[in-house]
């Protein structure tokens, strides 16, 4: 008799647990894959497509589905390390087939050569180029991700990718990198005094 009680108890238990699980599956349903969101948050969002996917989010999806981590040149090794950390996978060096890590760049249109064809506007993944048909176009430098996608479509080749100029506010205290311009103090002051004398004369 006891075995019937046992089976009945286990069955009830299984039923209750099943009901709870079923309720939780409906009530706490997650839209989309949260890991994709997390991966997407780590990617640099340049939307350059160098990984072979049309934007950062598709690549995030692909990584979640098992693609390699090392296809993002704008993110570089730092991003690869972070992704490896997040996913518990091995960090590999950047795949050179997709490009090399480079300094941050910004697109600049040589405006007197622009013919106003709007092709770059259509190519820009973040709408950072403004202009209209047969009107000059220009890049909103702050919004440009440096993805390079506008350069190819330009029929007159008037878009340059220039390194982002470094500003004192964002200087990284690389004292070794200062172009050593330590003027010899004796020369500096003496030459100054000479010029000052000339001024007074």
């Amino acid at each position: 008799m006891s075995w019937i009680v046992g089976i009945a108890a286990l069955s009830i238990l299984a039923l209750v647990a099943g009901l709870i699980l079923g309720f939780a599956a409906v009530r706490f349903r997650v839209e989309g894959d949260p890991i994709v969101e997390q991966i997407d948050a780590l990617l640099p969002q340049t939307q350059c497509g160098q990984c072979g996917y049309p934007g950062c989010r598709p690549y995030a999806q692909a990584i979640a589905d098992g693609d390699e981590l090392n296809k993002c040149p704008p993110g570089g090794q730092a991003t690869i390390d972070k992704l490896a950390d997040l996913l518990g996978r091995e960090a590999k060096p950047l795949d050179a087939a997709h490009g090399n890590e480079d300094v941050k760049k910004v697109a600049v249109i040589r405006e007197d050569e622009c013919i106003g064809c709007t092709k770059c506007i259509q190519a820009c993944p973040v709408d950072a180029i403004i202009g209209a048909t047969k009107q000059m176009h220009t890049v909103i430098a702050d919004e440009c991700t440096g993805c390079d996608l506008c350069v190819e479509p330009c029929p007159v080749d008037c878009i340059d990718m220039l390194p982002v100029p470094e500003k004192p506010e964002r200087w990284k205290w690389n004292l070794e990198q200062i172009p050593v311009a330590v003027l010899d103090a004796t020369q500096a002051s003496s030459s100054h005094s000479v010029s000052a004398d000339e001024e007074h004369r």
Binding site: L43, T46, C56, V126, T145
Partner: peptide, 9 residues
């Protein structure tokens, strides 16, 4: 900046 780029994209 990445966050803004993502929103714009």
């Amino acid at each position: 900046k990445a966050e803004i780029a993502r929103q714009r994209f």
